[in-house]
Simulated scan of single mutants.
Amino acid sequence: MAGNRDRFSTATRLRLLGEQTAARVYRSQNRRQDRRSRLTGRAAFLALVMCTLVVALAYPTRQFVSQRNEIAEQERLTREARQRVEELRDEKARLQDDAYIERLAREHLHYVMPGETGYTMIDPDAARKHQEGREATDRPWYSNVLDDVDNADRPER
């Protein structure tokens, strides 16, 4: 009976309880670590898959954005070209009008109609500068051309 009592003594019970508890805690920690290591492995695999997808999609995405920008630029150039074509068509239509041509000839070429008297005002300062050998920048273009034709036969100074 003494052995029986020893078996159910408080110290023995506490020792057995402590061993059982320690075993449970040890098993629980092992399970958690196994779960953590599995979770870490899964997380690493998932991260690897995500990185692969990002890398795999990065180049096509960049190409797509680049091509969209290029398409937008080409559409802008097309709109500008169409606008320029319309302007040129309008100008062509205006150039078919004799009154418009006459007005351009009077304004830019200083033409006069038969019976009219044309006057050209000369700036005295510009004439003086020209006589001194300096080019006058505010003279009409045709005056410079005529002077160049007149001076073409003269020897260099």
Rank of each mutant, 00 (worst) to 15 (best):
Q29Y: 07
S66I: 05
E75M: 15
P114N: 04
E86R: 05
L14H: 15
R15W: 11
L77F: 06
A47M: 08
A22R: 15
E75F: 08
V55W: 07
E73L: 09
R134V: 07
D138G: 07
A56C: 10
S143T: 14
Y142W: 15
V65I: 15
A99C: 02
I101P: 02
A58V: 09
L46I: 07
S9P: 05
P114D: 03
N144C: 13
P114M: 05
A81E: 13
A56D: 09
G18S: 12
R62D: 11
T61I: 08
A43R: 10
A44S: 08
S143I: 15
R24I: 11
M121C: 04
R76H: 13
R89N: 11
R42C: 08
R84N: 11
I101Y: 00
V65T: 02
K92I: 01
V25G: 01
S143H: 15
G133S: 03
L57Q: 10
T61L: 14
Y119A: 03
L104R: 01
R7Y: 15
V112I: 11
A126M: 03
S66N: 10
V65L: 14
Y142T: 13
R24T: 09
E70Y: 10
A23R: 15
R27Y: 07
R42G: 03
G41D: 14
E132S: 02
R79D: 13
R106T: 05
M113K: 13
A72D: 12
D90T: 01
I122N: 04
F64R: 09
G41P: 01
F8G: 14
H110N: 06
Y26V: 12
R7D: 14
N69P: 06
T61W: 13
A23M: 13
R32T: 10
I101G: 05
Y142R: 14
